[in-house]
Design a protein around this nucleic acid. Structure first.
Length: 1036
RNA sequence: GGGUCUGUAGCUCAGGUGGUUAGAGCGCACGCCUGAUAAGCGUGAGGUCCCUGGUUCGACUCCAGGCAGGCCCA
């Protein structure tokens, strides 16, 4: 097994790994080979198959891959069943767009059967796109055996669930005010409405409602939905609040006392005040007298009337508001419905017949103005719900719908919700908790075509209801059992199945389909076709240990999963939820298909590789933070991190290949290795420990930080300083220690990276694995944490800082590192004595000095300069300041500085004053021949005095450097042996340092004069000596 | 209007039980190094830590109020 350099092109490298995974069946084995281990249950939140994946989907998808991979390496068995959410309005909408139609009438005309078939085709197409993305990014999930919500088996389980819920008395038909999309022609559930609020400008109008028995007095009413005014049948006041009659510009207006200031802005005179109850029962002149009799057009009392907005007098339209509807039922108001199912006014309201209600607002306002009923009209900005899929403004409508009585199980659901661990925690306690607290019954039915059919049949004769819980029951009760046995459980096919009623009548199915969130929310059970099949599988996989989706699923899947889980199985269906932040575009706008600002990840993956995208997503920020996406992030992950890892490996592979090092080569035990090696192992131990702890706490970002810090240490310190250890011949003990350390570091790094960048990790593993190791890193066990040597890490930290200061000192003095210098003086710090000589030796090599000396005083290397601080001196000493300054300048600066340091002041001879430290500015300058750096991190003085010997050494290094460059220019391998010819003044250096030059540049011959058949040659100039050299490859 | 999260360098983001001079990466400038080489290192410039008020010896951090953005609710 030879180490070999990794494929540098990420696309090719990852392609090879994908092929290898397929060939060796690695994913399946990673599950099957863990069958004996503890089960770690993961649930896939099914993507809706109505659009292509975008980069915002990747963040949650990454978590859903990363944690199962990690847990697998920890020894758990983690089956991962893929799933696809196939039903619902989103899919219908896609097909409508394809067909260029937009109403239910058009669908009926096109034919429901053909329409449904197109829905299936659309779903298949998008599933294909998702599968491609999932495979390419190395997201391991069983795509061969997914749960598919459109399958008859899946539907059958949903029917069983509904029957169970019905048996508990929690499924019921109701007539309620529901948010309704006039374009889609169906009501929506509260979690669907929650998806679609948007800020809009709506009219805000105040209207006069003259009293029937005293038309000189008008009740003042406020609304933001003028289109609901034709359906007005009453006004509501709060019986216990105080109302006021106000005279204004010759008219008399009634409104709540607390609203007078806000509405009239201080104009008008309050004539009298009275309780709201005084108004009850009074009649008023309707705006549009469409209703007759009863208590129409009178004032009623209601507790919900608010003193926070409006006028304290509320317009009541029972057809269009939930509270209005309840109130109407309670006090017996007529229900006016002048709007049809498509959101257009009917003949009942001729003024705007056939117009979409929201479009009719201006016409209604104009009409009321003409008739003197309009008091004021303005515009307000507020949030209004829109259909989450087609962006049509929702209307609140009195509708028939089927409900699940979730509120009946509220206590149980809340109690179970307490058992769930949320990451980050606040989502569970705040957002999710709030939503549960305001729970409403689940409006389950939809008036649509493509979905799970509601399994409820009714008898045309006696009106009996039957909830069917399985295909078996269907066959048993069907008029045509053969049809029932084979029929597809979708509309329109299922609608052809009629049942026999005990009364002798025929039962037909109610034409509803289910809220698609019921489909996905039931996957815990329906993915197994439980209870008809796979009973053991179901039991072993409920509840899930881990789910992860975007924050927007709080009211979506997280909610419906919980509700169905608790109702059916009495237990929360998941234990840990990792919530990912929403994806924003580079401008900070939410990425969404409708805004057209989605970023397609695939071109980025093609350019930089899946690992780069994965590492970018994982290492940028905590997963729950929202984030702005850009291709630049993936580029940085690639060149800033992945390429460094590859480089480290390739460095190792290059030299291990040259020396014939293998994993079986004996290496010294770690305690017997140099401090540099022991330091790296300690740092490795830290990385393993931190990454493990972070992943156990569902914080992958922290894990990436620990790993990235380790890679930085590995590349920029360990390998950089260790390079000379690899250059000599053979395999002496120190070299074997270096190989052993570097090998262990890279091998462990491959394991740590496996969940994050599975392709690069695999490529590393394949190069590095030992005889007998598993044939994939993803089958290998996660590294065990091991102890650190914290003292050594601190000492290394100290010497790295010293080296950095010393390089800074070189920089200041403009002396190249190649030029050796005699000494580096380091201002001693506590603990420096304990730093082993070995570490100071690293500093010597890094800084290229002959010795490192600890000193207690910088005095030998610097001298003070003192100058008067006139800004302080002036105000204190007035006209004497210049003379004091001059006197100070004549004094010995060292003495002044010493006095100030000792006493905090210094007497000025002849002036009779003492100057305080703030009156004298002391600056330090290095003495001649030294370069000085003082920072918070420490202080060093670099001795710059170069003697002839050092100078010559510098020249040698310069020459060697040039020769190495020439070797490279000539295209030689690092192991090639060469012959060297030289001419000119340079010859002196060759004569003086012949042996060392031979060793450094692998020259077997050094010959004065030109070289026959040379591969390369050049003019060189080193420190005033010029000449020419020739290089020729003679062997390897 | 309410809840919640976020606001720190040009960009993407860390951070701190309240304590000298607030960090990283990228980008920029200058320099270095190069037997890992389409790499690597150092130095520098760049910050009212969103604003206001409070608590405190001391606030970027805690508290209150506000502003801006995201998500959610009404």
């Amino acid at each position: 097994m030879a180490f070999r350099k990794l494929e540098p092109d990420p696309r090719k490298r990852e392609g090879d790994v994908l092929a290898l995974w397929a060939e060796r069946d690695v994913f399946r084995r990673s599950v099957e080979e863990r069958r004996g281990g503890p089960r770690y249950v993961f649930y896939e939140g099914p993507p809706t198959a109505n659009g292509r994946p975008h980069i915002g989907h990747l963040l949650a998808r990454l978590q859903k891959d990363l944690f199962p991979r990690y847990k697998t390496m920890r020894g758990c068995c983690v089956p991962r069943k893929a799933g696809w959410d196939c039903h619902g309005l989103p899919v219908e909408l896609e097909v409508e767009k394809e067909l260029g139609i937009s109403t239910k009438a058009e669908i009926e005309r096109y034919g429901v059967e053909a329409f449904v078939e197109r829905c299936k085709a659309s779903v298949r197409r998008y599933i294909g796109a998702w599968e491609d993305m999932i495979r390419r990014l190395g997201f391991w999930i069983d795509l061969e055996h997914p749960y598919v919500t459109l399958s008859d088996d899946y539907i059958e389980t949903l029917w069983w669930e509904l029957k169970e819920i019905h048996r508990r008395g929690l499924l019921y038909p109701g007539h309620k005010i529901l948010p309704y999309c006039p374009r889609c022609g169906t009501s929506l559930s509260s979690h669907e409405v929650a998806q679609g609020y948007d800020r809009v400008a709506d009219p805000s109008v105040y209207l006069r409602m003259p009293l029937a028995d005293d038309p000189g007095v008008s009740l003042l009413v406020w609304t933001t939905t003028p289109w609901t005014l034709p359906a007005n049948v009453a006004l509501a006041v709060h019986p216990r609040e105080v109302y006021a009659e106000v005279a204004l510009d010759g008219e008399r207006l009634v409104l709540a006392r607390d609203r007078v200031e806000a509405v009239l802005g201080g104009r008008g005179n309050v004539l009298r005040e009275f309780p709201g109850s005084d108004l009850l029962g009074k009649g008023y002149l309707p705006l549009y007298p469409l209703a007759q009799g009863g208590r129409a057009y009178t004032v009623v009392g209601a507790e919900f009337v608010s003193m926070e907005e409006g006028t304290g007098i509320v317009h009541i339209a029972p057809a269009f508001g939930e509270e209005d509807h309840e109130l109407g039922k309670a006090v017996g108001l007529p229900l006016l419905q002048p709007v049809d199912r498509s959101g257009r006014f009917t003949d009942a309201f001729p003024l705007a017949r056939g117009e979409f209600v929201k479009d009719a607002d201006p016409k209604i306002i104009a009409d009321l103005r003409d008739r003197g009923r309009l008091f004021r009209a303005e515009t307000v900005e507020h949030d209004y719900p829109f259909c989450w899929r087609c962006d049509t403004p929702l209307l609140y409508y009195a509708m028939e719908s089927w409900f699940i009585a979730t509120t009946q199980a509220k206590e149980e659901i809340l109690a179970e919700a307490e058992t769930i661990a949320w990451y980050p925690e606040h989502v569970g306690s705040g957002r999710f908790g709030d939503f549960l607290a305001s729970m409403r019954d689940w409006a389950l039915s939809r008036d649509r075509y493509w979905g799970t059919p509601l399994p409820v049949w009714t008898c045309g004769r006696c009106g009996a209801l039957e909830v069917v819980g399985s295909r078996g029951e269907l066959v048993e009760r069907a008029v045509d059992p053969d049809l029932a046995r084979t029929v597809e459980l979708h509309r329109p096919y299922i609608d052809r199945v009629e049942l026999r009623c005990p009364c002798g009548g025929t039962m037909r199915r109610l034409p509803y389909v289910l809220d698609t969130w019921f489909d996905s929310g039931s996957m815990h059970t329906a993915q197994w076709h439980y209870p008809f099949e796979n009973v053991d599988e179901f039991r072993a996989s409920y509840p899930a240990d881990f789910i992860s989706e975007g924050l927007d699923q709080t009211r979506g899947w997280f909610y419906t999963l919980l509700v169905t889980g608790v109702l059916l199985h009495g237990k929360a269906p998941y234990r840990n939820v990792l919530v990912t932040g929403m994806g924003l575009d580079a401008q900070g706008q939410k990425m969404s298909k409708s805004r057209g600002n989605v970023l397609d990840p695939m071109p980025i993956v093609e350019e930089h590789g899946a690992d780069a995208v994965r590492w970018y997503l994982a290492s940028e920020s905590a997963p729950w933070n929202e984030r702005r996406y850009s291709a630049e992030g993936a580029r940085q992950a690639r060149f800033g991190f992945l390429e460094t890892v590859r480089n480290c490996h390739d460095f190792f592979a290059l030299y291990a290949g040259i020396d014939g090092f293998t994993p079986e080569t004996p290496v010294p035990e770690p305690p017997a290795r140099p401090a540099l090696d022991r330091w790296l192992l300690s740092r490795l131990g830290a990385a393993v420990g931190e990454a493990t702890a972070a992943l156990e706490g569902y914080d992958p970002f922290r894990a990436t930080r620990a790993i990235a810090a380790f890679v930085d240490d590995l590349s920029n310190w360990y390998i950089r300083l260790s390079r000379p250890r690899f250059w000599g011949e053979g395999l002496p003990e120190d070299k074997r220690a270096a190989y052993g350390t570097l090998y262990e570091a890279l091998r462990t790094l491959a394991l740590l990276l496996a969940p994050f960048t599975p392709f690069l990790a695999e490529a590393l593993w394949l190069s590095l694995r030992r005889e007998g190791d598993l044939d994939s890193v993803h089958l290998a066990p996660w590294p065990e944490p091991f102890p650190q040597d914290r003292a050594l890490e601190e000492q290394m930290h100290r010497v790295r800082e010293v080296a950095s200061l010393a390089l800074g000192a070189r920089n200041l003095a403009k002396v190249k590192v190649r030029q050796p210098l005699p000494s580096l003086h380091v201002l001693r710090r506590p603990g420096d004595e304990a730093v082993p000589e070995e570490l100071w030796d690293l500093v010597k090599a890094e800084v290229n000095v002959r010795e490192v000396v600890l000193v207690d005083d910088l005095a030998p290397f610097r001298s003070p300069k003192v100058s008067p601080e006139f800004r302080v001196l002036g105000p204190r000493h007035g006209p004497r300041a210049p003379r004091i300054g001059a006197a100070l300048a004549r004094m010995d600066p060292a003495a002044v500085a010493a006095a100030l340091a000792r006493d905090g002041r210094v007497p000025i001879p002849g002036e009779g004053v003492e100057l305080a430290s703030d009156e004298v500015k002391v600056t330090w300058e290095p003495k001649a021949g030294f370069s000085l750096v003082e920072e918070r991190e420490g202080a060093v003085a670099l001795d710059l005095r170069i003697d002839d010997e050092l100078r010559a050494e510098g020249d040698l290094r310069e020459l060697v450097h040039r020769l190495q460059l020439l070797r490279k220019e000539a295209g030689f391998e690092v192991t090639d042996r060469i012959a060297l010819g030289y001419a000119g003044d340079l010859g002196e250096l060759f004569h003086r340092f012949g042996d060392r030059i031979r060793d450094e540049v692998l020259a077997v011959e050094l010959l004065p004069g030109s070289l026959d058949g040379a591969d390369h040659g050049a003019e060189l100039e080193v420190h005033g000596r010029s000449g020419r050299v020739w290089l020729k490859r003679v062997g390897r």
